[in-house]
């Protein structure tokens, strides 16, 4: 099929099996005369390879084959370079690759935005949860002060009732507690017993019981609240102090910028009352 085939009429010899050329060579080999036409292809190949002859034709073909081998090696080397996978690519291929990369970048960008939005929402909600938790803790402390489950400190007064005659009774102390509450007392303790919403005072012989705990004179009230309100509330004419002094008790009231109410009371679950707010 190459150009050599058209130079003469041997064109069909290649299509035929080798037996066509073999018989004449076998027949003519006995006389010993070696005409090129009588040789088989294989013999011609061997003759061409060995012995080497330096002819013009051989040199020219060698030059051309040198060029072929050179080009082949260069192409293979530049193709297997790896770092230049795009170097041999055509313009349209490069454009297509660029388009694909753009699409991919766009898709990844969209995904990134979605994820960032999600992250923002999650951070927001966790911030809200944290805020709610803080508020809950704060509220628990405030309620704990009222319920007597946590210690409290702040400005307030100390009232000491010296009852040498033993004539002070529970209702007088209760009046004192009521008066203090009316004046805005926020935390009260009497001789180490915290006064809360359910506190009751009873007489027991010469002394007084607070929530079933006997306490002895002198009765020391530690009260947290605004001292400027609490002290006048106790000292008003006909009020707590005067009533107690009528019973020959000595009452001293001291203002203080720091009162510590550290008597505690266990949090108790009510037996019957349930929150109806939910």
């Amino acid at each position: 099929m190459s150009d050599h085939d058209r130079t003469n009429g041997h064109r069909f010899r290649a299509e035929l099996p080798a037996e066509v050329t073999a018989p004449p060579s076998a027949a003519e080999e006995t006389p010993g005369e070696r005409t090129p036409a009588a040789l088989t292809g294989r013999q011609r190949l061997v003759k061409g390879l060995w012995p080497p002859r330096v002819t013009r034709a051989q040199l020219i073909v060698a030059l051309l084959l040198f060029g072929l081998g050179f080009g082949l090696a260069v192409q293979v080397a530049s193709n297997s370079d790896g770092d230049s996978a795009l170097r041999g690519a055509r313009q349209e291929d490069l454009v297509r690759i660029l388009d694909e990369l753009d699409d991919r970048t766009q898709r990844l960008e969209d995904e990134k935005q979605g994820l960032e939005k999600q992250r923002g929402e999650l951070e927001n909600s966790s911030d809200q949860a944290e805020e709610a938790r803080k508020q809950t803790v704060e509220k628990e402390r405030q309620l704990g002060v009222l319920a007597g489950t946590v210690a409290a400190q702040g400005p307030g007064i100390t009232m000491t009732v010296q009852d040498t005659k033993g004539r002070v009774e529970a209702d007088m102390l209760l009046d004192a507690v009521q008066e203090l509450r009316a004046a805005g007392a926020e935390a009260i303790q009497v001789n180490g017993v915290r006064v809360v919403a359910g506190t009751f005072l009873t007489d027991s012989g010469d002394t007084v019981s607070v929530d079933g705990n006997k306490i002895n004179a002198p009765y020391r009230f530690k009260v947290i609240g605004k001292p400027q309100d609490l002290e006048p509330a106790l000292n008003i004419p006909g009020g707590v102090v005067q009533t107690l002094e009528k019973e020959l008790a000595t009452v001293t009231v001291e203002r203080s910028s720091k009162i510590v109410v550290d008597a505690l009371r266990a949090a108790e679950r009510p037996d019957y009352a349930r929150s109806s707010s939910r």
Binding site: M1, S2, D3, H4, R42, I60, L64, L65
Partner: peptide, 29 residues
């Protein structure tokens, strides 16, 4: 170009085996 040269070389080899190889024809092809 390398593939085309390979084709020419195979054509030349076949012509040589056929006994009709001609160096001028090979160079031109």
């Amino acid at each position: 170009a390398v593939v085309a040269a390979l084709d020419a070389v195979f054509g030349g080899l076949r012509a040589m085996l056929d006994g009709i190889f001609d160096d001028k024809v090979f160079v031109v092809s």
